[in-house]
């Protein structure tokens, strides 16, 4: 177990910030707490199934299969799968990080994990339908067409910039997350 301060330091700082604002401007502070409550509800709604699915994936899908489809040497197939899996996801981007940790444990190729994160962040299918109806087909389709190559290019650029040892350390760290 990590020391308490390290575990809760950020949370305490965030609460302190809201408390300070409340002292300074009560109505703004209450509004912030209200919105935080709303986000908490959303988070508690989305996260449990995401984590349970992750647990099931971890237990049932053998590493060899994940390596074959998305590991080193999975090529275009791996990229396509990463985009599809990310796009089919539900929930905000923070839900993608725990899934990425499971992918690391299953030795999924690093660029494919980054592509998955990119797809989750911006090409989600349910969101796309919603975006089309709110902002128009031209807007949504243009964004999608620019985003897909963009996600792939960013993934490869990141992988090239991060030293190999650091990536190895991240994979190792994922074992304990």
């Amino acid at each position: 177990m990590k020391p308490l301060l390290k575990r809760f330091g950020f949370l305490i700082a965030a609460i302190a910030a809201v408390a300070a604002i409340t002292l300074f401007d009560a109505s703004l502070g209450f509004k912030a707490v209200n919105i935080a409550g709303f986000s908490l509800k959303e988070m508690l709604l989305v996260l449990p199934p995401v984590f349970v699915l992750m647990g099931l994936l971890d237990v049932w899908v053998p590493k060899e299969i994940m390596i074959r489809y998305m590991g080193e040497g999975s090529g275009v197939k791996g990229i396509a799968l990463a985009i599809l899996l990310g796009s089919a996801a539900a929930g905000p981007l923070y839900g993608a990080f725990p899934v990425a940790a499971v992918f690391m444990r299953k030795e999924v190729k690093f660029t494919n994990i980054l592509i998955f994160i990119g797809a989750w962040s911006t090409t989600k299918i349910p969101m796309f339908v919603f975006e089309m109806s709110a902002l128009g087909t031209a807007f949504a389709v243009t964004r999608l067409l620019v985003d897909i190559p963009g996600i792939i290019i960013i993934a490869y650029a990141l992988a090239a910039l991060i030293p190999k040892e650091e990536i190895k350390a991240l994979y190792k760290n994922a074992e304990n997350l």
């Binding site: 575990r7 809760f8 950020f10 949370l11 700082a13 965030a14 609460i15 910030a17 809201v18 604002i21 703004l28 502070g29 509004k31 912030a32 707490v33 209200n34 919105i35 935080a36 409550g37 709303f38 986000s39 908490l40 988070m43 996260l47 449990p48 984590f51 349970v52 992750m54 647990g55 099931l56 971890d58 237990v59 049932w60 923070y94 990080f97 725990p98 940790a101 997350l177």
Partner: peptide
């Protein structure tokens, strides 16, 4: 699987809660 799910959730929970407080602040 459920044990693993809980462990991951428990590990990241303080960060999530902190983020949510900040979200409240920013959107206010």
């Amino acid at each position: 699987a459920l044990k693993k799910a809980w462990k991951s959730f428990y590990n990241i929970l303080p960060e999530f809660l902190g983020v949510i407080m900040l979200v409240g602040l920013l959107l206010a």
